[in-house]
Amino acid sequence: MSSKPKIGIYGLTGCAGDQLVILNCEDELLDIVGATDIRSFPMAMSGGDENCPLDIVFIDGTVVQPKDEEMLKRLRERANLLIAVGTCAVWGGVPAMENKFSREEVKKRVYGPTGDLFKTITPQPLSSFVKVDLSISGCPIEKEQLLQAVASLLHGDLPRLPNYAVCTECKMAEYPCLLIEKGHLCLGPITVAGCKARCPSYGRPCIGCRGPVEEANISSEVRLLKEKGFTPSDIQNRLRTFAGAADSLQMESLKEGTNA
């Protein structure tokens, strides 16, 4: 990338909170704008170029509507690197929470008769449709991780994001363990780090908003939560909140000691 890399920032269905994090990088935004050529960022600017090839495209949100899928595939064709930004884009996020019910059933329940006015498909992360070059999870993403990712991408590397559990950061910061000390339903052991254990720092358990850590030992987590008195439905609901589309978090299909 000798000249400034051409960048696009797009959102599929979702709250656009991850795009907001980009906009909220107040101190660094000028540096980002200076180092890149932002061709399109519909949330922040009008008149973007919707046809040019892109070096990097950042996409937040989940594929929930047929038009999301079309847009995603089109962006994949345009971009050299496609970056999934936020837990929705990486894991399906909150929209995928109810994926075990049929779409029609969920639509009826939520929208009633007006639901007939639009089409939805089962909410899926970007990787279900296209090749994803880098995933930056988080609900929303962490600003520091985003900036490091951008810096690395500009340097021609993929960044190395944490691939260990929230527990690691929780202990590095020396917070008391909420599973052990309070018996809370904490997903720290199976959730990917990067948030510096923000919730435990306020005495609140990890609810898994960053999605599962690679090779998470879900069956051991479920066992220990059951031992603390949580019911299978308590546990399944918590597991499903942010990454319902992740196979590893489906309790029905849990295999004992995966990759033990």
């Binding site: 260990y164 559990a165 527990c167 690691t168 929780c170 202990k171 590095m172 363990c177 720290g188 052991p189 199976i190 850590v213 090779e215 998470a216 030992n217 069956s219 051991s220 987590e221 004992e256 000691g257 033990a260």
Partner: peptide
């Protein structure tokens, strides 16, 4: 093998 099935690989033991 048994400990491997229980271990969460969460890193806590090493940190502490």
């Amino acid at each position: 093998q048994d400990v491997g099935e229980t271990c969460l690989s969460c890193g806590t033991c090493s940190m502490v």
